[in-house]
Design a binder for these strands. Sequence first.
RNA 1: GUGGGUGUAGCUCAGCGGUUAGAGCACUUGACUGUGGCUCAAGGGGCCGGGGGUUCAAUUCCCCUCAUCCACCCCA
Length: 428
Amino acid sequence: MIKALRGTKDILPDEITLWDYIENTGRDIFNIYGYNEIRTPVIEEASLFIRSIGDATDIVQKEMYVFSDRGGRNIALRPEATASIVRACIENSLFHAGGVTKLFYTGPMFRAERPQQGRQRQFYQIGVEAIGSDSPFIDAEVIAMAIKFLEKLGIKKFHIKVNSLGCQKDKASVMEKHKESFRPHLEKLCADCKGRFEKNVLRIFDCKKDSCKVIAENVKTESALCGDCAEHFKQVKHGLDLLGVKYIEDHRIVRGLDYYTKTVFEITQEDLGAKDAICAGGRYNNLVKELGGKDTPAIGFAFGIERLALALAKPSSLACPERSRGKPRASSPNVFIAVAGERLYNEAFRLLNDLRKAEISSEMDYESKSLKAQMRRAEKIGAKFAVIMGEEEFKKGKVILRDMEKHSQEEMDLKDIVMKFKKVGIVL
RNA sequence: GUGGGUGUAGCUCAGCGGUUAGAGCACUUGACUGUGGCUCAAGGGGCCGGGGGUUCAAUUCCCCUCAUCCACCCCA
């Protein structure tokens, strides 16, 4: 039997309503803030991601799906959307002169990782990009919007962590400062952390080993941000205060993509297990230029939709647990036509078609099942009414209309059925 | 890539070195000769993940493999 590939999943009809809810809520919120939707291809030239995310990063080195197409082109399945969107903006001249281009997106991303809770190989993100301003107000606004999205969804128990990596020049000295503060303890760190020291110092802060934790907690690194970046970060925090955003300043926040500069942030949620980051983002002031556009500052974030769905499925994560969106039902028909006597199938089939033509959702069974079985089916799929066609009534041109919820029924003319439902004006 | 857990009916899971592998839910049929939800009864469904080994005998024990879940690395 052929099965879905490792790390991929079918999103079944029962879950789709939850996904629609997440995506539609995002659309509503992002629209309010002036963002327009964009859809870019799932495949791109691999070099786009190598140049943007960084060729030394794990995402590019170990996780990117890369292949040669029939024309020998080097293709990658996108591991994230930002690079594609920047590419699309440059290619289609979407930048507003002197203004901010605000875009949002939703769609599948691909990373060849080992699956675990909240992590798949094909996963979905919903996110935004605001391109064209370095104003700290934008930073604060974008973060506030992410929170608004979570609040609107009804998710609670999340935490916002912010940090600044500084500009391109600062990034090197920030890392150097951290290295300096760890250097005296280098011998006492675990083997993994010794590797991290060279590769990515900040990861030492995330080490699970107690011995490393103790060292990390006591290490104090002085700020290495230049004057401009320090001031920018201060303004961002001021903006967040103005908007009433409660955040934690965490100098250990570091993103796995090379293009980030200055402000970076992360939102975690308590009920998600090991993969608790529900949203991450930050500034990427050099990326547009790096990809061949004009020197343009930008900022964005991405939410993991599976992780949002995971949180929404846990009543403990919801502001209103009673309105849990764990298992929404697929759509149910308004009318089920039950037929007693196979000779009436033609009439029933015709009525079914008439109802549907009148845009009244309806179903019937073609399997010659017993009336009891048909009624059970009607109940099962949540039909609001049953039209029962029997030989006796049909001779008089009549059928039985049964209200499934009220458990009551009446005889009426077959020709009036469609009109009857139109008058009742059933709404799903 | 590394470590641990789990693979038995459509679903959730029992089970045991030894007749014909079970339960609940779901499904079908009947009690109710033309009416759903409750009850009761009957019935259909299983390469016990795959391969190899030990044994008189393996779904059960051992090895390998695959899948899956969780965790690590890393990340949304």
